[in-house]
Amino acid sequence: MNGKTYDIFPGIFEKYFYSMTIVLGALVIGLFFAILFTFGATLLPRFLKRLVYGILTVFESVPDLLIVLSLQMFIIYIYQKTGWLISNVTVVYDDKIYLVPILVLSVLPTIQLFKITFLLLEEEKYKPYVNVAKSMGLGDYYILIRHVFRNVLFNLFLYFKTIFVFLLSNLFIVEYIFNIHGLMRIMLSPNTFVFLISTILIAVPFLYVFELAQWMIHKSTGEREKEAA
């Protein structure tokens, strides 16, 4: 890279775990806030639900670069006013930053997961088994958490692969702007072997994770269908 030669191993593993920590952190935060916002939105009147959904749709179109710059300026402003540095806004030398890149990268999955979860939840609420549960005297919150939300999580997993691909594409931008020397920066190398190793490190582990999770979901839903029968 840049006319210099570097050893691929073991340095690539350090960069790999650094990048994947940012990706997984963003995914966990996105899922947490998406679920939190979804529960909050279910308590709102119908017109407010549409308003929140519309605002998030508009916010989803905001470029990632604008979000990064806004967050960096906010951190600098807080530091100038209070002397408290929340986090470094860029990587200097061999330092590592986690908080700001994770927050920036979590914006897109938060909005996407919220919209998907919200629509799935609204769809599940009108299915026959919900009316049967209500006729049995079960409370709304119990039905929502115990039955509706569990079914939503199963369906939500189908969208995780797409969201994961979006995260990887945005990780290129995040690593470049924050000067992070992660796995995505290595993939820009003109060396084909380096690109191949980096791709395998991303594709193979998560392929097994998604396949295992899908198998567990099919097993769980199959057992529930047998119990229902």
Rank of each mutant, 00 (worst) to 15 (best):
L31D: 12
L27S: 10
L103V: 02
L201Y: 01
L168G: 02
F195H: 13
W84D: 02
I12N: 07
R50A: 15
D94S: 05
D64V: 08
I173K: 14
S169W: 09
M20D: 05
R46G: 04
V107N: 03
A203C: 03
Y6K: 06
Y77R: 13
L43Y: 10
L36V: 05
H181S: 14
V92N: 07
M136T: 10
F9W: 05
G137Q: 12
A41H: 07
W84N: 07
Y53Q: 09
M184I: 02
Y141W: 14
I8S: 06
A133T: 11
V174S: 07
D94C: 10
T199N: 12
V130G: 11
I97W: 01
L153E: 09
M184E: 00
I163M: 03
N151F: 13
I78W: 14
L158G: 06
K226D: 03
L69E: 14
F74A: 14
E223H: 03
I29L: 15
N131C: 12
E225L: 15
G3Q: 04
W84H: 02
R146P: 10
G83F: 03
L201D: 03
E175M: 08
V148L: 15
T38I: 06
K161Q: 08
F32V: 08
T192P: 14
S19E: 13
E122T: 02
I22S: 00
V23T: 08
T82R: 09
L43T: 07
V100S: 03
P45V: 11
